[in-house]
Design a protein around this nucleic acid. Sequence first.
DNA 1: GTGCTTGTTGGCCA
DNA 2: GTGGCCAACAAGCA
Length: 275
Amino acid sequence: MPELAEVEFFRKRWQQVAAGKTIRGVLVHQQAKVFRGMEPAVLSKSLTGTRFVSSAASAKQMLFRFSGGAWLGVHLGMSGELRVEASGYSPQKHDHLVLATSGPVLVFTDPRMFGRIAFHAGPAAPAWWTRIAPPILSPAFTTGAVAAFLQRRGRAPIKAVLLMQERFPGIGNWMADEVLWRAAIHPKRLAGSLQPAEVRRLWRECRHVCRLALDTIAGRGRHLPPDLNVHIPDSWLFNHRWEQVGLCPKTKKPLQREEIGGRTTCWSPARQKLP
DNA sequence: GTGCTTGTTGGCCA
DNA sequence: GTGGCCAACAAGCA
């Protein structure tokens, strides 16, 4: 599920209740694949007794900082979630990491286990974090950088290229479709075939969709919506992409769904045309 | 049972 | 070496 804005939503959910709290106990699901090469017992030992200092989200990843130079990295994969439960919570089947604080309980849950947990000890953030591409909403995301990347990936459909995290960090399947729909670009267009005006539209809509999604899904400032996706307007493609007979909110004509670049893609044929 | 699913990776091939 | 494609990972849901 989680793309840029959903990831930020989950980060805030932990941040709001846990900032400054001490980790009293850590439960790990020993067999869970989300820990990959790491030894879960080390994580448990290292975090117990530390204090939750701060957190950050970048692209589809999160980094939680604890006192004493302990860092917890989380990638939610396809089905991961961060939840907050009341103290005394008993872990369920797919809860792979449970942090009991002096207050609420922080839970990482992920049925499909495509997610990842990483641990790092040291004064500075880990290398895998600092290597994440600069955010789409940062000045480093320029039309020139986008144009150059589209040329390099010129033979691939633009839909597939938008999913490449090295240039479009945080964009996932639904955001890619939303961007192309707003920019009126057909998802099957080869990346190298986009005209300069189309590249500029794509760049602008990338930033626009990121900004809208963050505000709508993760809330502004300290505000946190009660649930994911509750406030998404019907003027977005998002609310129609899975409908049996979805209509384009702009043209009111039927939407089309097809696999492109290995992912189910939804677009509005009346608006997004092939040359 | 069948056929999907908002992600990433490694292997294969041109 | 580079870039594009796709199966695999795993569990739940309709």
